[in-house]
Amino acid sequence: MNDNLTAGTPAPLTQVAETTNNPSPRTLELAKNWSEDVKRLVETGRLVEMRELLEEVSQTLGPSDKLAYWQRIFAKPKKLPSTPASSVGNHANVAWIRRQSRPYYGQWVALREGVLLGANDDPNALRQQLQEAGTYPGAVFIKIGG
């Protein structure tokens, strides 16, 4: 508002335009803080509030690169086509576990593509054993019987 205007005096057109376009306190606050506010809400897991804030920013301030980023990240999930099962090595490991794990119940075993590389009560000792034998890379460690 122009404080110099007296009551009843028509304001010049330019001054009217400035008055109409004056941003509200909330708009000014949003423009200053929204990005940090979104980050804070994302970091603290308050995603419902974060989405509401993004919507308000979108309507109040309009598009921006930063807003587009956050909208893209938290957009609705994109469904992708499924693909046929492909876990071949795992099949072999599972087959070994099904057929041959009973004597090792309670122990840790190391497997690679259905081949037993070692077994031990202590996973660290088993790892050491494999490292010494040069068979550690690619080994899968499983405790039989949980």
């Binding site: 994302v42 990240i73 099962a85 876990s87 795992n90």
Partner: peptide, 21 residues
């Protein structure tokens, strides 16, 4: 944060493919 494609691998049926954060 980024949206990435991830596949949860199946040994029976179909692997599940998703684009998630």
């Amino acid at each position: 944060l980024e949206r990435l494609e991830i596949s949860l691998v199946a040994d029976i049926g179909e692997s599940l493919n998703l684009e998630t954060v």
